[in-house]
Computed example of a mutant assay.
Amino acid sequence: MSLFLDLVDRVLSHEGGYVNDPNDPGGETKWGISKRSYPHLNIKDLTRQDAIAIYQRDFWQRVQGDKLPVPFVFQALDAAVNHGIGNAVRWMQRAAGVADDGVIGPVTLAAVARQEPADLVLLFNAERLEFYAKLQTFDYYGRGWTRRVAKNLRFAAQDN
Rank of each mutant, 00 (worst) to 15 (best):
F74E: 06
L5N: 15
P106C: 13
R36L: 08
Q93P: 00
K35D: 01
V70L: 15
L3H: 12
V19Y: 03
L109H: 14
R48G: 01
W60V: 15
Y38W: 06
G144K: 10
G32A: 05
Y140N: 13
N87R: 15
Y38V: 01
F131V: 02
A110I: 10
A80Q: 04
A150Y: 02
R62F: 10
A111Q: 09
S34V: 02
L12C: 06
L5A: 13
L3S: 03
P39E: 08
R57A: 01
V121E: 14
L7K: 07
Q61G: 15
D101F: 03
R94W: 11
V112S: 01
S2H: 12
Y38H: 10
G86I: 06
R148H: 03
N23F: 08
G65N: 03
D159W: 12
A133L: 09
N82F: 05
D9E: 15
P117L: 05
D21H: 04
L122T: 13
W60G: 13
P117E: 05
Q136Y: 10
G26H: 05
L7H: 12
Q158G: 11
D58K: 00
F74M: 05
R62S: 05
I52P: 02
L7Y: 12
L129D: 08
P117G: 09
A99M: 13
A126K: 14
Q49T: 07
L153Y: 04
W60C: 09
N152V: 01
A113D: 01
P25R: 07
K67Q: 14
Q56H: 13
D50H: 11
H83C: 13
N82E: 01
S34E: 06
E130D: 08
G105M: 02
R48D: 00
G32I: 09
A156C: 11
P22N: 06
N160G: 14
G102V: 09
D24L: 04
D159G: 08
F155R: 11
G84R: 04
L135T: 11
F59L: 00
P25L: 02
K35L: 03
K35A: 09
G17S: 03
S13I: 01
D139M: 05
V63Q: 06
Y18S: 00
A111I: 15
Q56K: 12
V103T: 15
G144V: 05
W60S: 11
P39G: 13
A99S: 15
L153I: 12
A156Q: 08
V11Q: 08
K30N: 01
A88E: 04
D50A: 13
A51K: 02
F155A: 02
R94A: 11
E127M: 07
Y140A: 12
A126W: 07
V81Q: 07
W91F: 09
R90D: 11
V112D: 00
D9H: 15
E116F: 03
V121L: 14
M92G: 09
E28L: 03
A111R: 06
V103A: 11
R154Y: 10
Q64E: 14
V11S: 10
G32R: 08
Y141G: 07
A99P: 15
Q56W: 07
N42M: 08
Y132Q: 06
L129W: 07
F4C: 12
Q158C: 11
D101S: 09
F72K: 03
E28Q: 05
A76L: 06
D45R: 00
F72Y: 14
D119E: 14
V121F: 14
D21T: 10
L109F: 10
T108A: 12
S2Y: 08
D100P: 00
A80S: 11
Q75L: 11
I85P: 12
H40F: 01
L120A: 10
E15S: 00
S2L: 12
